[in-house]
Amino acid sequence: MSTTAQPTASQKGEHAGKYLTFFLGTEEYGLKILTVHEIIGMMAVTRVPRTPDFILGVINLRGKVIPVVDLRIRFAMDVTVSQDVCVIVVQVRGIQMGIVVDRVSEVVNIAAEEIEPPPSFGVDVPTDFLLGIGKSQGRVKMLLDIDHVLTGTEIVQAASAVAGSASGDDASPAT
């Protein structure tokens, strides 16, 4: 997965493929299908103190404790409550994490020529968490660089820092 903040035009070819799209508010986003582990309904989240707001807390994923991130808070968007809210469990670099989204949309195939590099709005609107902008069936989908989104939250970094000395529990690492 690309670790550069701004993919260049020559790189966009590698972003072509299947994406799971979902809505955050009225905006449609896409996640590379290979990073998606499963989609589950919203469940009771245990808040974890002393963490940033956008980390909603932890949930019990069939005996495994995984953190849940609310991208709407992360992107400073309005948080609405609805029946459709669900959690997409992604797996990045062996780490499982849940992402709260307003609604899951569909799985689409986006070809290389349908992907444009992320636009630049100056410093006000950071776009470095995007792989690019995908256009499919006449709609615009923001393709998320999930690795970068989560790295940006600095929780992944925190995790790798403690991974070596992780508390003796080995029940949780992803298989």
Partner: peptide, 15 residues
């Protein structure tokens, strides 16, 4: 259990 690798270690909590 650990709180999931994604969240790392939180001061005051052991898991």
């Amino acid at each position: 259990k650990s709180l999931g690798q994604g969240i790392g270690r939180i001061d005051g909590l052991s898991g």
